[in-house]
Design a protein around this nucleic acid. Sequence first.
RNA 1: GGCGAUGUAGCUCAGUCGGUUAGAGCAUACGGCUCAUAUCCGUAGUGUCCGGGGUUCAACUCCCUGCAUCGCCA
Length: 639
Amino acid sequence: MPNPFYITTPIYYVNARPHLGHAYSTIAADVACRYNLMRDRETFFLTGTDEHGDKIVRAAKNENLSPRAYVDKISGLFKDLCPELRIRYNHFIRTTDPAHIAVVKHILQKIYDSGEIYFSEYEGLYCFGCERFYTERELVDGKCPDHKTKPEVIKESNYFFKISKYQDWLIDHINNNPDFIYPERYKNEVLSFLSEPLEDLCISRPKTRLKWGISLPFDDNYVTYVWFDALINYISAVGYPDGELFKKFWPYVNHIVAKDILKPHGIYWPIMLKAAGIPVYKRLNVHGYWNVDQSKMSKSLGNVIEPLQIKNKYGLDAFRFFIMRDMVFGLDSSFSEESMVQRINSDLANDLGNLFSRVLAMAHKYFSGEIPEVDPVLEQELQLGLESNAIKAIDKFESAMEKFEFHKALIAVWEFISRMNKYVDVTAPWELAKKKSSRKQLEAVIYNLLEGLRVISGLIYPVMPDTSSNMQKHLGMNPDESYYRLEILKKWGTMKSGIKLPKSVTLFPRVDLKKNELYSGENSSEKTLPDLKPEISMEEFNKVDLRIATVVHAEVIPRAKKLLKIEVDLGEKLTIVAGISEGYNPDDIIGKQVIVVANLKPAKIMGILSKGMLLAGFDDNICALGTVDKKIKPGTSLT
RNA sequence: GGCGAUGUAGCUCAGUCGGUUAGAGCAUACGGCUCAUAUCCGUAGUGUCCGGGGUUCAACUCCCUGCAUCGCCA
């Protein structure tokens, strides 16, 4: 039985609404979790909200709400986002939950009893926005560098946690466990921070200035510093100290955080655990920031992309794919709608979507949608290494996923997708289909392709769960079986012949946007052009007979406002009435080559039988004829 | 101010221990195919490897220095 897997996101501070950064952390955790399901591991996925502290009180005041009402509201926003992003958490914790509060008190008491917390007086410049004291030096023009406000002088007695005592232990622990903080750059950052003496951590706030928090169990005049409270969620959520979940999952915990909260997680948290006699976490996984148009995705800046807007515009799976594929876990990345569209078109529509479409179309065309019966010898013969390519892709996928290198895992999958497209090209099933004698070969080729799609459908499961199950459905697989399990994906040839496949679908439509239509966040309707008419098929379009014609004669029609009577030559002569006299005099157009609809049903206009239509564009007072850019024989049809 | 990271094709990046002709994807151009969503396959490129100096038979790689960008700390 493989080890269990416990994954956490940060608990999100509810002083702002969810944004792209939150969505990324949470989706990354979801991807890691689903991957571990593929490995048959028992998983536990924790997310939630952090709801105490000064900033919350102030944010609540801003909205004229009580802290309680305010945190309920914002926490609800975070919670509601989860199903929309297909986040399958096991528990959504709130630091205002009574069970959490009890554990925080328990830990505080435990550390206090062991003598690691002391009482001391402190005076300093305090910024309420930052919830921290500043030294004179740190201030810019006497003001807080973040909030541009003047900090207040505050003198108070507080409780301090002796974290300095654990500094050497922590340095050793990090050095002895190279994976403890990952990727390495953040490990180095923490070590460099630890190369200087740590100051003890102030873990209390007097109730005289903050009541919204957890009371210290050993002094009711104080509440707990918000970080000390918040970090404990990772164990309170699984029932520390005696819960079964805690015993089962805690030894295997992976935290996911963004780099802005590296210090609390890389320094305070392990020391808190150590001081409380709890084994420290297994691994801290630190990711970077999403930059949007050069500037940081940050709560204090205004340029926040609502993840939901983009997701609604292009679909959830495309969104999940893009942020997992484009960001190297640990590094910063930039988000633009343009690069997302590029990825959707090239990776999703062209590579994966089109592969799926062409294979299923052939299965329907040549085998009326049934998985063909296959001669095992021929099947092997015509594999051309496809099976071993699949195994190789799965191996790469696995080792990348273990290291949270999501982009590399996806690259491995796409290498295989590309391999599949080449396989189609090399085996040329449409050639095999031409001859009765190669029927057996055709069966083997299509079967192998369907098998390859089965593997792909499984490998994309963590990142694109909806598309994965959609593919699976169209591959005629039993929806009750966990088709995405790695063990099953590695076995080639498990598809049963004779199963009828549903009619094929387009997995990802190509996005065809002009630049100026990008980034119109509010206007997130399906249509990409204003007043776009309903889609037509090629077949329907082909009913229109467009021809090049030369204007041989034109005259104004008396009493008509805009109409010209025009005679065109397209091999034979045709009379057309066209409403273009506001833009053209008869003499202007004689000799011009124009585009006409030649098979339009004739209609009588102003007593003249018009047997076609001239193409022209009208924009306010401009009228422009559709013409061709070089001379061409009249009567040539346009396609 | 201190410490660190990064700088490679038009764009995003890979490049092991110093070792032959510096790679991939996207974008571009050309060719091929027609099963497929104007898709797919193939071919072709282009490089001051940030600048300067040094070590070496040999430097994108190691050392020094300068510049630029970013991060952490003060």
